[in-house]
Computed example of a mutant assay.
Amino acid sequence: MKLISLTILTILFTSCSVTSDLNTRIDRSQKKSLKGSPFQTAKGMKAELKIQKKYRGDYENDLKNLLENYPNDTIILTEGYDFICLGCPSDYVQIFINDTLLLYRKDLMDKKYKKTKKILINHFDTTGYFYSDIAELRQEIRKGNQWNNNPEKYGTDECLDGGHTLYTIFYPLGKIESMYMRCWLNKEFRK
């Protein structure tokens, strides 16, 4: 009876765990990016990160599968938050690998993410605006640049609308790096 009770407790404990190793590593990397961010708005993101750990399970298995099936590729994860909703989970999530984008949008009715898959040509649309952040980060990574050391190179926190975005990059050898961005600016609007 004692062994059965211990087994049941172990199963309950492990099944109630919200945080996997991957989720913990993502969270740690994102917290580090907030701590080192030059943007004042980064300080207010702690509640969002805390709740996102709970919601990340909706797309974490897809991310794990990509990491296992494409061990030599760099994967870009973006989690975008609405500026006016404090302590809310990410509105949208994007996972980018090669020319494929998995897009997850928050469904307000059932509080889960709905997944769609897109194939991107040249990594952005013909106007050069949609997904241009992903394309630019990918170029910086290919060049070997420290893309996350200077977020002010790409954007600002002096904007009236927009949202918060956390970019998380998964490198082939298991390294994870993140960067917080308040408002990504197109190149022509940067300092």
Rank of each mutant, 00 (worst) to 15 (best):
Asp99Arg: 14
Leu102Gln: 08
Tyr104Arg: 04
Asp107Glu: 06
Asp110Glu: 12
Asp110Val: 13
Lys111Trp: 12
Lys112Trp: 06
Lys112Asn: 06
Tyr113Leu: 05
Lys114Trp: 10
Lys117Leu: 12
Lys118Glu: 15
Ile119Glu: 13
Leu120Lys: 04
Leu120Tyr: 03
Phe124Asn: 14
Asp125Arg: 09
Thr127Trp: 11
Thr127Arg: 13
Thr127Ser: 10
Tyr129Gly: 06
Phe130Leu: 08
Phe130Arg: 10
Phe130Ala: 07
Tyr131Gln: 09
Asp133Lys: 10
Asp133Cys: 08
Ile134Cys: 11
Ile134Tyr: 13
Glu140Cys: 06
Ile141Arg: 03
Arg142Asp: 08
Arg142His: 10
Asn148Arg: 12
Asn149Met: 15
Lys153Cys: 09
Lys153Asn: 13
Gly155Asn: 09
Thr156Ala: 08
Thr156Ile: 07
Thr156Asp: 09
Glu158Gln: 14
Cys159Ile: 09
Cys159Val: 11
Asp161Val: 07
His164Leu: 02
Thr165Cys: 07
Tyr167Gly: 00
Tyr167Pro: 01
Thr168Cys: 03
Phe170Ile: 01
Phe170Asp: 00
Pro172Lys: 07
Leu173Thr: 11
Leu173Cys: 04
Leu173Glu: 14
Lys175Ser: 12
Ser178Cys: 04
Ser178Ala: 11
Met179Gln: 05
Met179His: 06
Met179Ala: 03
Met179Val: 04
Tyr180Glu: 00
Met181Gln: 12
Met181Leu: 09
Arg182Val: 00
Cys183Lys: 06
Trp184Ser: 01
Trp184Pro: 02
Leu185Pro: 04
Glu188Lys: 15
Glu188Asn: 14
Lys191Asp: 14
